[in-house]
Design a protein around this nucleic acid. Structure first.
Lengths: 234, 234
DNA sequence: AAAACAGTGTAACATTTGTTACACTTGTGA
DNA sequence: TCACAAGTGTAACAAATGTTACACTGTTTT
């Protein structure tokens, strides 16, 4: 009984775009809107690369992965998404509204689908939902722009300098005089984030330390010459 | 007189998001909405990095560049934008709604600004405008995702393979049996597009030719072993 | 305490790419 | 026709990064 109820009326409070929908509109949605709720088992395919995207997909339970099939049949995992999140918010309204990826459930999952026309109706009824929807896509654009910039940085040294200065800024917002901070990733993770190998990253770190720009102690870092780090960027 | 008129009633038909606004709503806009039209001379700054973005900016005449100021004072050009295009469509509604770049006029330019509240009102009045706005951002997200994927490709050989297969696909939509096509960029441009040096690109091209995967003749290319090219991707 | 394990520091060597330089072709304008 | 510029092909060398391997530390498991 409890499970039944949680599926018909899922918890949207954690969803970045649905949490804004007013109570009345939510009731209205369940009463009069065309929508569908589907369950998927682990490994089941939710959407295929190339499929036309005519619905807004909202993952309300479980987790999925998105993969791209290369021409040779090789698989490339793009993203892992956990509930509660929209699955195709940027494709529904794009000119080329086809899925660029396969979407596969990695756990027992539940997906709510709403037809495009109904989403547009909901936009007109609920300004909060509309604003959140636009905000979500805008945030994504910003995130991608930023990521693209970071990826574009050529050398490991410059990537590291960029990252360290960013971390330093964050820790300065707490206390501007402290130049020592804990890294939020370990070396292995950071190397993967940069798209480089772990030994190469460790080497670059020790080079920076040798040159006296920073001091390292496990994954605690002290910035000694901020100016010199900044010079590495340009 | 003609110029005066063209400034008060600019031509929005080329604007990807404004072209959808209905005639009535456009009249309404000019009658009752708060909006501002500003002219800028070459070199003048339209918006500064860090400025809060409270308006929708639409470049209705001229051209601008967007640049990022690094901490050291170095400049990094991000994008060149020509009229008619929105300038900050993704920042207006993002959580962090500050300009990440300086926007500077590169020609005599004219910019229309509409306050955020008025844009929301217009969304509610004009579903076509709303849809175009969302579509524009969605397209941008797709473009960036794609770009990110391409940039993430590591070796020049794989980049080239990806590019050549893409070009081959385009030319196959015209005539599926032809495997020869003209490159849409010269080597120097392509090298810049990949973010590599020209000699490195030329070397890779001649390696592919030596291995018999392609045949080159000036900037005309014949794909000989499509399968082998595809193997270079994964 | 011993063993297993994850994270780290480091080194030798291979591969890829950048740097620089120069020769060759082609088209263009003086 | 000649000089010049732009695009291209190529080579030698330098720099950056990947690959692989191993030792060391601290933590967790047994």
């Amino acid at each position: 009984m409890e499970k039944e109820r949680s599926i018909t009326h899922p918890d949207f409070s954690k969803c970045p775009i649905c949490s804004a929908i007013s109570k009345e509109n939510m009731e209205e949605l369940y009463r009069s809107m065309k929508y569908k709720i589907s369950g998927y088992t682990r490994g089941e395919v939710i959407a295929r690369q190339g499929d036309i995207c005519k619905h807004l997909y909202i993952l309300i339970k479980g987790a999925v992965k998105t993969e791209m099939v290369t021409d040779t049949g090789g698989l490339l995992t793009i993203e892992n998404i956990e509930a509660v999140r929209p699955l195709a918010s940027a494709f529904l309204f794009a000119e080329d509204n086809r899925f660029p990826v396969d979407v596969t459930a990695t756990e027992e999952s539940v997906v709510l689908t709403i037809p495009k026309e109904e989403v547009i109706k909901l936009f007109q009824k609920d300004a909060g939902f509309l604003e959140r929807y636009i905000m979500y896509n805008s945030n994504k654009t910003q995130f991608l722009s930023n990521k693209l910039q970071v990826v574009t940085i050529k050398t490991i040294k410059a990537k590291l300098a960029h990252y360290l200065l960013e971390q330093l800024n964050i820790c300065h917002t707490v206390s501007p005089s402290v130049n020592t901070f804990q890294m939020d990733k370990n070396q292995t993770e950071l190397a993967k984030f940069f798209g480089v190998t772990r030994p190469a990253l460790a080497r670059t770190l020790s080079e920076l330390a040798q040159d006296g720009l920073i001091a390292t102690e496990r994954n605690k870092i002290t910035v000694l010459k901020k100016q010199a780090l900044q010079n590495l960027l340009g």
